[in-house]
């Protein structure tokens, strides 16, 4: 019983934050709303009994991504771009996103497995074992990707020719 209430609160926060991200006129407000949404998502992870993931989520998104985004907004002088923040495609975008929502919910609604009610806890040990056994190669590749991204960022933003 209480779980449903918590779920509703967390869902409301999440979606409300999302709404703030896409509909806010002020870019700083949009970023803060994103933070709220992402923290709500972390809460949902906790509800799904994956605490480690919630931790990682808070750390990376709340700690790194949001800061980087704020820096970017500051460097590109987004605050000087006042007024309407939506482009000319707004009406179509509303229709399309509603359609996407309808499609996905229809897909999940007709799926039998979606009515499962048991959730199981995920011990951290299993996660670690999985990560380093079946998912080893994606793990290594992800490291490689991070390296490449680092290099790429340096190259792209370098002032003189390298």
């Amino acid at each position: 019983m209480i779980e449903i209430i918590v779920l509703i609160i967390l869902g409301g926060l999440c979606l409300g934050g999302g709404l703030g991200v896409v509909a806010s006129r002020n870019v700083a407000y949009a970023t803060i709303c994103l933070l709220i949404a992402l923290l709500a998502v972390a809460g949902i992870y906790v509800m799904l009994l994956s605490e480690f993931l919630a931790l990682v989520q808070v750390l990376i998104y709340g700690g790194a991504v949001t800061i980087v985004l704020l820096f970017a907004l500051m460097l590109t002088r987004a605050h000087e771009l006042e007024g309407r923040q939506d482009n000319r495609q707004r009406p179509i975008a509303i229709c399309v996103s509603l359609l996407i929502f309808a499609a996905i919910s229809f897909a999940t609604y007709t799926n039998e497995q979606a009515s499962a009610t048991d959730r199981v806890s995920a011990p951290l040990k299993t996660l670690g074992t999985e990560l380093f056994s079946s998912w080893l190669i994606p793990f290594e590749i992800t490291g490689l990707i991070l390296l490449i991204v680092l290099l790429g960022v340096v190259i792209i933003t370098h002032k003189e020719k390298i």
Binding site: C14, L15, G18, L19, V21, V22, A37, A93, I94, V96, S97, L98, I100, F101, I104, S105, T108
Partner: peptide, 9 residues
């Protein structure tokens, strides 16, 4: 789904 469609918008 709802979050995703908000993102699409």
């Amino acid at each position: 789904a709802a979050l995703f469609s908000l993102g699409v918008y």
